[in-house]
């Protein structure tokens, strides 16, 4: 059972000044799957994603995307290869319209965008209704949809999402996870970072737990959902 890994992280470390935020972690993302990285605040999840996409310089280690080394490349060169990040806090461009936010997601593409704009609008009908509105006027949930839609516009083979459920009402969170599954069903590989362990583990094929910069546990989503330590630490259930 040899899987094809589209993203392979080996011995990655990330430091801020003297502080090591990510310490020598290794994991791999199989093509077409949903992989999640869960962990408490400050565990180093965002730093890991930011290093993959070149927003932080890795202190050590290798990041291979479809066999190619990404460490050391600039962010624009990395996203051009087909990997993108929906950043923590959504970060839509508030001064651009919804439609412009989608178009700028496809900034590197030179082909016709109309089909993909239609595709994203089918996924998120709310965005279509509001296409002329400034993104800054959208609600949190709508902004999250827009941030995901914007990422999809680059037609990535891997989408990384940093806490897409953060700060959203439970009913909206369900919607976000439904979309994640739908996008995955359409063939996009997903690396999902979450504190909402319950939802993330249910959605994930493979999961890793991060604590203070290290990966401390791994398994399939179902395995970790059943794990007593995980239940106690992340799912708010006490050990039996």
């Amino acid at each position: 059972m040899s899987k094809e890994y589209i993203l392979e992280i080996s011995n990655l470390s990330v430091s801020y000044g003297g502080i090591k935020a990510v310490k020598d972690i290794s994991f791999a993302v199989p093509k077409g799957e949903v992989v999640t990285l869960i962990g408490a605040n400050g565990a180093g999840k965002s730093s890991t994603l930011r290093a993959i996409v070149g927003l932080e310089k890795p202190a050590a280690g290798s990041i291979k995307f479809a066999g190619e080394e990404l460490a050391g490349l600039s962010t624009d060169a990395i996203v051009e290869k087909g990997i993108t990040l929906v950043p923590e806090g959504r970060r839509v461009f508030p001064n651009l319209t919804v439609l412009e936010n989608l178009k700028i997601g496809a900034y590197m593409r030179k082909d016709d965008l109309s089909k993909d704009i239609e595709w994203v609008c089918d996924l998120f009908p709310r965005l279509k209704e509001r296409s002329w509105q400034k993104a800054g006027t959208l609600s949190g949930g709508e902004q999250q949809m827009l941030a995901i839609g914007r990422a999809l516009m680059s037609k990535p083979s891997v989408i990384m999402m940093d806490e897409p459920s953060l700060g959203l009402a439970p009913i909206v969170v369900q919607g976000v996870f439904d979309i994640i599954k739908e996008i995955n069903r359409q063939g996009v590989t997903i690396l999902l970072v979450e504190q909402n362990a319950n939802m993330a583990l249910k959605a994930a094929d493979q999961a890793y737990v991060m604590e203070t910069g290290r990966i401390t546990m791994s398994g399939t989503g179902t395995e970790l959902l059943e794990n007593d330590d995980i239940k106690a630490a992340y799912l708010g259930k006490s050990k039996k």
């Binding site: 996409v53 600039s74 624009d76 996203v79 950043p87 700028i104 900034y107």
Partner: peptide, 9 residues
């Protein structure tokens, strides 16, 4: 940062 993520130089 987000502009960089869009592939903007």
């Amino acid at each position: 940062e987000t502009a960089r993520l869009m592939g903007i130089k």
